[in-house]
């Protein structure tokens, strides 16, 4: 049994932009490791360094949101569309989780990313584009506010109002019931696993049945 997750609340950090891929979340050089320890420090490292360099050079651009002190300590990350596309590396959600994030709110997410997050007990909740835009504006205007993602009711509360959000049924149930570490659930199938295997022609030497 994993921890039951009914709600995630706290500050929320706004990271604008669509199609943010997992190479950007955690560049491949940090995948040279045999544990996930220490990945939290490297989330978005290249983007953050480039933003910092731009600030130093021109002083016109703002910090990368993950380095913006107004968002310090955020537990929710608010993103655009198709977040987490590309490589299947679980190192991406692992690094964000280790950087303190416990939920992602966005217009849409890449499938493998959602699967990886679900296995870690991290909800990826979707909002209608209009609601998401209002949320982003509200958070940037008042970054200190507490945001509440209610898993059971599929709602998100912020100063922009109470919005309905989308959470895949299976994921929602697993979070609420504390079943998000799937291994134990899958093992419950017991001998049905071998029965399925034995009925597959390619595991039975293609014998006639």
């Amino acid at each position: 049994m994993s921890e039951r997750i009914r709600r995630v609340e706290g500050r929320a950090c706004v990271l604008r932009g669509n199609d943010i891929d997992t190479d950007r979340i955690i560049p491949a050089r940090f995948l040279r490791c045999v544990t996930f320890d220490g990945l939290g420090a490297h989330a978005f490292e290249d983007d953050r360094k480039q933003a910092a360099a731009a600030v130093a050079a021109a002083g016109v651009k703002s910090d990368h949101p993950l380095d913006d002190p107004r968002f310090a300590g955020a537990r929710l990350l608010v993103v655009g569309a198709n977040f987490g596309c590309g490589s299947s590396r679980e190192h991406a959600p692992q690094s964000l989780m280790r950087a303190g994030f416990r939920a992602f709110i966005g217009e849409s997410f890449a499938e493998i990313f959602v699967g990886n997050c679900s296995a870690l007990g991290l909800p990826c909740a979707t909002l209608e584009p209009g609601d998401l835009a209002a949320l982003m504006d509200a958070l940037e205007g008042n970054p200190a506010q507490q945001v509440v993602l209610d898993i059971g009711h599929c709602t998100l509360r912020s100063s922009a109002g109470l919005h309905n959000c989308g959470l895949r049924d299976g994921v929602r149930a697993a979070l609420l019931e504390g079943n998000w570490n799937a291994t134990r659930v899958l093992l419950e199938a017991g001998p049905a696993i071998e029965r399925t295997a034995n009925a597959l022609p390619y595991l039975a030497n293609f014998a006639r049945r």
Partner: peptide
């Protein structure tokens, strides 16, 4: 299909995955 590391664990342990 591609999977993440926790799902690699699931496959090693059960030869199964939970999928929609």
């Amino acid at each position: 299909f591609g999977i993440g590391t926790s799902q690699v664990r699931d496959v090693l342990a059960t030869q199964c995955l939970t999928l929609a």
